[in-house]
Design a binder for these strands. Structure first.
Lengths: 205, 205, 205, 205
DNA sequence: CATGAATGAGCCTTCATTCAT
DNA sequence: TATGAATGAAGGCTCATTCAT
């Protein structure tokens, strides 16, 4: 009796729509993307979409939530069995390097735009803040542990370190948002890693 | 024959409109801001604006150009008689600290949104790239000189340093875009300064 | 997959819109007719029209092309099996007489206004000229044949005759554009026919 | 005490405005001509015009009245001492031939457009009809006299002749409204003259 | 009187959403 | 459920006219 197949089908379709919409939103921006664009890109009809999402904005929000969930989730997973502050930081930078610049750009573009959008919709700021906090928390724990284990200098301000970490990472992606070589981006990521490690480490490191 | 109102008056008005529009754009975003909003905020009539600007987009572009010109200009000016790479970096961070967080947010919000917008308008990407290059150039020169004078370590990649500098600065502003305490922001700026100086400096510094 | 409404339905609607718009354009003129007027007259919504026509101007142009096509087409058809220059001229005047004065007025009003409009739009002058040439050509062939068969005097200037024919016809409609009795119009048409026949014929006729 | 100079000056200015406006109206059409266009063409200010005319429409109407007055007036004058129907017809055609095709086009364009415009303004139709009647009357008198003197055939319908005369003349101008050679226009005018004379004359002529 | 900046009603067009089929 | 034609509110821009200087 349970319509499992149907449910699976629906979920698949939902995901497909989200993917198609993401493509359009990244390409043209949320406001400039017409429902017609999404529909044409997906080869479906206008009305169909409204069976899965209440509105264009609804798609945007669910899309953003999905992406942020996935990111936080994946970081948590991968940190499960990873010890050491330095290793974790290195691991994170490794992850950043392994993402193609194109992907970074897409994600950054999408994320920035959604951030600006959400910051103006009172109903969304809390969600946004929650995700932000999770990313902050994730890093702070690293630095806190690093100080306990002595990997980080004792006078390190773990909050500052956390913010600086994300600042460097987001800021670098920002510099490459519009153009720039992937090779340069990779090189600068390496330098950023050095800079951060030097900053958090003991004087001797 | 003589103009009814002086050129100075017109320029004043132009500036006033730009200021009012900036207020609205920062508050609600470019696309979400209706011409009606700007006009109401300024207490003028709808048509009046079109004597000064060709379109809403024209206002946006001129506004952006004006701000970027001013920024680049002011940096150039203040660097005239300032020697030493370290001093210049310190000076820049000082400047950053002296701007109120509110101002930073406004500027950052505006700039990010314009960047996203312009990146999708072929006619604007070049302008955007030009301004970006000026900021890059400004910093690169500092690090190049720093290496000449020995203030920076000889193996410093001045390009990397340049990008990292802006990444830290922009990235930090980004973390505080939606919320956060001014005090924290200031503290982290200090830390950022330490991080950067440590990164570019000689091992002994 | 199959269209919700048939192509025939769409074509019907297109024609209905064109007819409604024609009514309004003839009544108030193209520029003075608001899209709102057309829509109200047709009992449809504003947006609906834009599924069939790209703009108010597009409707105007297609309308004009349709009418001119139909006219040229119908004349060609009816000339297929009609011999003799005199008979053809008589046939044409018969046609003119059979059109109600009201129809003539509508068509003339529409055509004149479109002509004035199109003459100021570089993109339309060629189309206009093409239709005009077709009407000219149609008549010239009559007079050329008339000279071959001896129905027309040998020293007749077929170009002059062509232009005079249309001049008389259009000019007469022009005199009755604003007011005048249908009976008078019919009578003058008869006289016009005599005048033209006398002009093109042999001295003896 | 009488401000004669001032009055003359005003009248001069009024005429200048009318002339400038006529230029614009003929070039772009009444509705498409912006007050700004007229003002720029004349090198005066927007407000100035409203000291002489109540509105754009007012200019249009007065302009039309002026032109029609002048035309009717001039015909009347020149007919004062001219005897004979045939001579008068010849004289009229001579007048038509002496006008440059460019002038004809301007006048025709202006007149047609005003006619279409006025026909939709109840307040103007009477004025329009009055002028039309004057032109009709002028010609009818010629043919009436022609019948009295025997220059025209006795069974001539003077009303028909009148309408046909104007039809031929207006219709021919209409054919040349958009393009065509002045030489052709002149030739066809000659032919038109022959056609009309043949039509109104005795069988022997 | 002249000037031209300001006014603001008006209009074409767009596009998210609905709903009859 | 899917379709896509229809809806209609909304918004950028125009331009005849006014009026403070």
């Amino acid at each position: 009796m349970s319509p499992k197949v149907s449910d699976a089908y629906k979920e698949e379709k939902r995901a497909a729509i989200l993917e198609g919409a993401l493509h359009c939103f990244t390409e043209k921006g949320f406001q400039a993307t017409k429902v017609e664009d999404i529909v044409r890109h997906l080869g479906m009809s206008k009305g169909a979409i409204y069976g899965y999402f209440a509105s264009k904005e609804d798609m945007y929000i669910q899309m953003s939530n999905g992406r942020m969930d996935a990111m936080v989730q994946s970081l948590h997973e991968q940190f499960k069995n990873m010890p050491g502050a330095t290793d974790r930081i290195r691991f994170l930078f490794g992850r950043f390097r392994n993402q193609s610049l194109d992907e970074i750009r897409k994600w950054m573009t999408f994320h920035l735009e959604f951030m600006l959008y959400a910051s103006r919709q009172p109903a969304l700021v809390d969600t946004l803040a929650a995700y932000s906090n999770k990313a902050i928390q994730l890093l702070r724990e690293i630095f806190e542990e690093g100080k306990r284990t002595g990997e980080c200098r004792q006078d390190l301000d773990e909050n500052a370190a956390t913010y600086l970490f994300w600042a460097v990472r987001d800021g670098l992606a920002l510099q490459f948002l519009l153009d720039g070589e992937a090779a340069d981006y990779g090189r600068y990521l390496n330098e950023a890693e050095q800079m951060v490690l030097r900053y958090i480490g003991n004087a001797s490191s």
